[in-house]
C-alpha cells in the first residue's frame, strides 16, 4: 500500500523494478543506474518522512503493514504466555494479555490486537475492544501487581468498539474503572502508543507512569474524520482537523502529555518491521529499568502528580 505523499518514491521504486528486469538480462548500464536510484530512494525517503504532515502521519499510523502487538510479542520476547478471559463474561480477542520475558526482564504485556491479515483483522475486531477486553486487561494488571511484575501496555486502536452489546455490557463503566484502578495500581506501568491512540478506548489501558509514542503514532481525543464532521460539518476536512488536534508524537511531547518518542526506521515502521521491533524492545528494557527503581509510595505519588498536572487553564484573580 502506498500513500499519496509517497508518489515520488513509488515512481523511483517502479523505475528500479523495470531496470532490475533489464539487469537480469545482462544489461550492465542498468545495474549501475539501479545503484544510483537506490541511493536516491534512500535520501528521498528520508526527506519525505522528515516532513510528514499530521494527516500523513495518521495514514502511517494506520498502515496495515505496521507491526502489531503479535509481531512485537513474538519478535521481541524470549517467552510469552497468553492468558484469556475477564472471568466475568468471556475472552476478548481484541485485547492481548500475557506474561512476557525479554532476557531476564519479566513483565505483563497488555495491548490492543489488530491482526496481521484480513482474516485476523476480522477475528480480532480490528483491535476495537469490548468491555470484557478492558476487564481482562485490568485483571491482568491486578495479577501483575500480585506477582510483583511491571506492566507494559501497547496502544493501537481506532477506539473502543461502538456496538450495542458493548453498551449493554458497560463499555463506559469498564473504561472508567480501568482509569481509576490504574491510577492506584501498585506496580509500575509503561505505556507505549504504537499505532493509533483512539480516544477513551486507548486511554483505558494507557494510564502509565510513563507514556511513550512511536514517532509516527497518533494519540487523539477523537478521530480527525469525526472531529471534522462535527466541528467543520464536513468529513473531508479531516486533514485540517488532524493538524488542529495536535495528535502527533512531537506535538504531544511538546505539550508534556507523553514522556518520550521511540524513533521509527526511515520510511516508517511498516518499511522495516524487524528494525522497529528491536527499537521497541530496547525502549522497554531501558524504561522499565528506570520506573522499577523507585519505591512504591514514590511511584504512586509521582503517578498522581503526573496526571493531576495535565491541563492548561487560566487562574483569574477574584
Amino acid at each position: 500500500m502506498a500513500f499519496e505523499f509517497e508518489s515520488d518514491l513509488e515512481n523511483i521504486r517502479e523505475t528500479i523494478a523495470v531496470l532490475e528486469q533489464k539487469s537480469m538480462k545482462g544489461d550492465a548500464a542498468a545495474s549501475a543506474r539501479i545503484a544510483e536510484l537506490r541511493r536516491k530512494l534512500a535520501t528521498e525517503t528520508a526527506r519525505v518522512y522528515s516532513s510528514l504532515t499530521p494527516w500523513d502521519r495518521v495514514q502511517v499510523a494506520r498502515h496495515p503493514g505496521r507491526p502489531t502487538i503479535d509481531r512485537y510479542a513474538h519478535g521481541m520476547c524470549d517467552d510469552f504466555v497468553e492468558i484469556h478471559g475477564d472471568r466475568v463474561y468471556g475472552d476478548d480477542p481484541a485485547m492481548l494479555c500475557g506474561f512476557a520475558r525479554i532476557a531476564k526482564t519479566k513483565f505483563m504485556l497488555i495491548g490492543h490486537r489488530k491482526g496481521d491479515n484480513t482474516e485476523e483483522n476480522i477475528k480480532y475486531n480490528f483491535g476495537m475492544a469490548n468491555p470484557e477486553g478492558y476487564r481482562k486487561a485490568m485483571r491482568a494488571m491486578h495479577l501483575a501487581e500480585k506477582w510483583g511484575l511491571p506492566v507494559v501496555t501497547m496502544i493501537d486502536t481506532a477506539g473502543a468498539f461502538p456496538g450495542m452489546e458493548a453498551e449493554a455490557r458497560g463499555q463506559a463503566e469498564a473504561i472508567g474503572r480501568n482509569l481509576m484502578e490504574m491510577a492506584a495500581l501498585e506496580t509500575p506501568i509503561l505505556s507505549i502508543v504504537t499505532g493509533e491512540g483512539g480516544s477513551g478506548g486507548a486511554l483505558g489501558i494507557a494510564v502509565g507512569d510513563r507514556i511513550l509514542m512511536l514517532e509516527n503514532a497518533i494519540f487523539s481525543v477523537i478521530s480527525p474524520e469525526g472531529c471534522a464532521s462535527i466541528l467543520w460539518r464536513d468529513g473531508t476536512k479531516a486533514p485540517e482537523a488532524a493538524a488542529a488536534l495536535k495528535l502527533t508524537s512531537h506535538d504531544l511531547l511538546g505539550l508534556k502529555i507523553i514522556d518520550g518518542i521511540i524513533p521509527e526506521p526511515i520510511g516508517g515502521a511498516h518499511s522495516d518491521p524487524d528494525g522497529m521491533v528491536v527499537a521497541v524492545r530496547q525502549a522497554i528494557l531501558s524504561h522499565l529499568q528506570a520506573i522499577c527503581s523507585v519505591s512504591k509510595s514514590r511511584m504512586l505519588d509521582a503517578r498522581y502528580k503526573k496526571y493531576a498536572s495535565i491541563g492548561r487553564f487560566v487562574q483569574e484573580r477574584i
Partner: peptide
C-alpha cells in the same frame, strides 16, 4: 488529548 487526559486525572 489534553481534554482526554482529564478523564485520567479525575479518576486518579
Amino acid at each position: 488529548v489534553v481534554s482526554l487526559m482529564q478523564m485520567a486525572k479525575t479518576c486518579a
